[in-house]
């Protein structure tokens, strides 16, 4: 069972998580037929910007986040934005819609796409609840081991209670699978790998 403090923390996070939506006029653009390279680039940029803005709004509401050193706040967000967005894409995937409508326009190689789709598939098989998604997003953002963090202990203090709540959620919703919590945490290094690939890909685009 959750303690009253844990329950209210969970309710609070779920409330801000449910408000985490990108504006409809941005997501609608994906459905428009637009196949020029420049058009695709603009849509992708606008979506990415919008996702980051929404992510920052969610993060600002995480209990204690605004008490962290300002530069640490930025380092946490910079380090986690790509992972949080990939993570979010496993739920409802506007990114995969974008890619499936415009298969070749980004010249993204199969070595990058295939592991990503396998990842999304394996997440689907975990049958995660909304609470688990929300908590894992918060846990990804509040990772104390990101680059350039000065006060790691303070970040740890914010992340730990969320891990406790996530563990309880896993026991509650997946009583038949005692490994569920470990399985979820095991996805996080995979997300980091995508983050590295993403950075490499951006760099190669820039060079080209």
């Amino acid at each position: 069972e959750f303690t009253p403090e844990q329950q209210s923390l969970l309710d609070y996070i779920m409330d801000s998580y449910s408000k985490q939506q990108i504006p409809q006029e941005v997501s609608k653009k994906l459905l428009h037929e637009e196949f020029s390279a420049e058009g695709n680039f603009l849509i992708l940029t606008e979506m990415a910007t919008s996702h980051v803005q929404v992510l920052v709004e969610f993060t600002k509401k995480l209990p204690g986040f605004q008490t962290l050193d300002h530069e640490d706040q930025i380092a946490l967000l910079k380090g986690s934005a790509v992972e949080a967005i990939y993570w979010k894409a496993t739920i409802r995937s506007p990114w995969s819609l974008l890619f499936s409508n415009r298969p070749n326009s980004f010249s993204i190689s199969d070595e990058f796409i295939t592991p990503m789709f396998n990842f999304y598939k394996s997440i689907g098989e975990l049958k995660m609840t909304q609470e688990e998604y929300a908590l894992l997003t918060a846990i990804v953002i509040l990772s104390p081991d990101r680059q350039y963090i000065k006060d790691r202990e303070s970040v740890e203090r914010l992340q730990e209670p969320l891990l406790d709540i996530l563990q309880k959620c896993c026991k509650l919703h997946h009583p038949d699978n005692p490994q569920h919590f470990a399985c979820l945490l095991g996805r996080l290094p995979e997300l980091r790998t995508f983050n590295h690939h993403h950075a490499e890909m951006l760099m190669s685009w820039r060079v080209n």
């Binding site: 940029t45 910007t49 980051v52 803005q53 709004e57 600002k60 930025i74 967000l77 910079k78 934005a81």
Partner: peptide, 22 residues
């Protein structure tokens, strides 16, 4: 779109300060 050429850090800094629509 004014944010098209803005880097990730700039978007984050702006959003953190609540300056969405500038």
């Amino acid at each position: 779109n004014s944010s098209t050429n803005m880097g990730l850090e700039a978007i984050i800094r702006k959003a953190l300060m609540g300056k969405y629509d500038e």
